[in-house]
């Protein structure tokens, strides 16, 4: 069902945890739909110097969170904002169709955390946040 890469990131998720002095925190999804992703960013000079995540969700949700954090770690914000769910899926060697929403959540979690950082430093949010699962409709992911 899952690729070896997905299984690897599920079994050995990278960057699990929280960052006490994070300056960008984003949470998307909801428990009703069965997945929540929370991403913590430590940003210095517009560069993501550290990233951690917590995820409540299925194997794909855990793997996409893990991969998303890997893809943005050490990158400038401008680059992290170009992260698409497609890139996460490709980096994981694919996901079953019913699990694609997990990759969308991962992309949105990253954007949500950067938006939080922008808000904290008083910068205007000039990118699309996506739906973020806030609508409480599981089929809208």
């Amino acid at each position: 069902m899952y690729s070896e890469k997905v299984m690897d990131h599920f079994q050995n998720p990278r960057n699990v945890g929280t960052i006490a002095d994070a300056n960008g925190v984003g949470e998307v999804g909801n428990a009703k739909c069965g997945d929540i992703m929370k991403i913590f960013l430590k940003i210095e000079d517009d560069v993501i110097v550290d990233v951690k995540f917590q995820t409540f969700g299925c194997g794909a949700a855990i793997a996409t969170s893990s991969m998303a954090t890997e893809l943005i770690k050490g990158k400038p914000i401008s680059e992290a904002l170009t992260l698409t769910n497609k890139a996460v899926v490709e980096a994981l060697d694919g996901l079953p169709p019913v699990k694609l929403h997990c990759s969308v959540l991962a992309e949105e979690a990253v954007k949500s955390a950067i938006a939080d950082y922008y808000t904290k430093i008083g910068r205007e949010i000039d990118f699309d946040l996506g739906c973020g699962g806030c609508c409480d409709h599981c089929d809208h992911h």
């Binding site: 009703k32 299925c58 019913v98 599981c138």
Partner: peptide
């Protein structure tokens, strides 16, 4: 979680469990 609807089992909902 692996079905398209993402709804948990109708049995567990029928005994009154919240989705989460």
């Amino acid at each position: 979680c692996s079905t398209a609807s993402l709804d948990p089992s109708h049995v567990l909902l029928a005994i009154g469990l919240p989705h989460e």
